[in-house]
Amino acid sequence: MSSGDVSYTRANQLAKELEEELPSLFDLSYEPKWDLYDKKVAFRDPLNKFEGIKKYQDNIQMLKDSPLFTDGKMDLHQVEVVDPNTVITRWTLGMTFKAFPWRPRLEFTGSTKYVLDADSGLVVEHIDEWDSIANNQPISAEGLADVVSQLLPNPLQVVSLQGLRQLKGGGEEVTKYSLIRRFSDRIEVRRYEAFTMVQSETGSVYDKDSYLLTTDLLRKFRGDALTKPSNSLGQVLPVTEPQLQMDSGKQDSSLGYILPPEWRKRSLKPSGIAGLQLVEVPETLVATLAVRGFGADRSRSEQALLGAREELATLVTRKGFEILEDKDAFTIASFADGYEIWLRVKEK
């Protein structure tokens, strides 16, 4: 949002600067336009609070050139001029903590409120809030707990996920996405890039036997060391993750095998096998709830799945998203270490 009103001039200028420069936050050459900021600018996030342009500059420099963090990335999703004195941004921030051998990746999504002085038009307040916590006042115990939980070693970093995939027959994860909102370690909203999958007919899975038959159908399409592939190119395709099960909410579902990206543009389709179709899935906003990792209760009983769907739908609806699925419908995305519940959503 922007305005042509002269009173919006400084807010519009700040918004333009943020939109152009914030994605380069971690570039060593990035230098904010400090003349847009008041010398007594106040900064606040869940872990810190200070005042003064020098401390503000040092904080920016610490992010860019930290001895503890590397591979920093800032994804800017939105810049909005709310009024002549307020600009709000929405972002995803990620960085790798290099001081630990397992090099944990920390990710946060949230918003920043820039408050401009009514007389000078300079930024006098910078307020960060994270989506993953309720108490954003420093020093937030929730904020500290969130950071610590992301720093702790994941057992899958000790027992490699690749090894687990080999043990359990999983494959490479081929779906690519941008993290839009992170509400907890379990619940996120992601924007998935378009992908292609081979999908069984709607309603083809309705009990254990039909699930096994449909799984075998997809295996025949891919082919393996013992099975000639039933696809138009006659080539064996790799196992990929996740495998998708689209549940209609009416006691039946269909299964989907996601093609590796390098196969998307090739003339590949089922051949000599009925009940499968090629489906192009466009870029999609997806709310996810993860039931993955050691120690997680990965039950797939109807009660557990519907309970997880309800938990996910309730939270993201409360956070301003609209569920696009039919009543009780959802997708199960299966991985070597568990599964995720997926719901297609849009922002209200």
Score class of each variant (00 low, 15 high):
Glu280Thr: 13
Val189Arg: 01
Leu305Glu: 09
Leu268Lys: 04
Lys220Asp: 06
Tyr8Ser: 10
Glu262Ser: 10
Ile273Gln: 03
Ala145Arg: 12
Ser184Ala: 08
Ser2Ile: 12
Lys208Tyr: 10
Trp342Gln: 04
Phe69Asn: 13
Phe100Leu: 15
Asp146Cys: 12
Ala329Pro: 01
Arg318Val: 13
Phe330Trp: 05
Thr202Asp: 14
Leu68His: 12
Ser2Trp: 08
Gln13Asp: 15
Lys33Pro: 10
Ile323Trp: 00
Pro23Thr: 06
Tyr206Asn: 13
Thr109Cys: 05
Asp71Asn: 13
Val189Asp: 02
Pro23Leu: 04
Lys16His: 07
Glu80Lys: 08
Val147Gly: 08
Glu173Lys: 07
Phe108Gln: 05
Val147Gln: 11
Ser230Trp: 01
Thr240His: 04
Thr112Val: 10
Phe26Thr: 11
Phe195Asp: 06
Phe100Ala: 14
Gln13Tyr: 12
Ser149Met: 11
Lys220Asn: 07
Pro67Arg: 00
Ile53His: 09
Arg292Lys: 15
Ala145Met: 14
Lys113His: 09
Glu129Tyr: 00
Val174Ile: 13
Val316Glu: 04
Pro282Ala: 05
Lys228Arg: 11
Leu285Asn: 01
Arg90Trp: 01
Lys40Cys: 14
Asp328Arg: 07
Glu262Thr: 13
Gly121Ile: 08
Asp185Gly: 15
Ile127His: 03
Val279His: 01
Ile133His: 00
Pro229Gln: 03
Leu278Asn: 09
Glu262Ala: 11
Val279Phe: 00
Phe100Asn: 12
Pro23Asp: 05
Ser24Gln: 08
Phe43Cys: 08
Gly275Lys: 00
Ser3Arg: 13
Ser160Asn: 09
Ser253Leu: 04
Arg190Pro: 05
Tyr114Ser: 05
Glu188Gly: 07
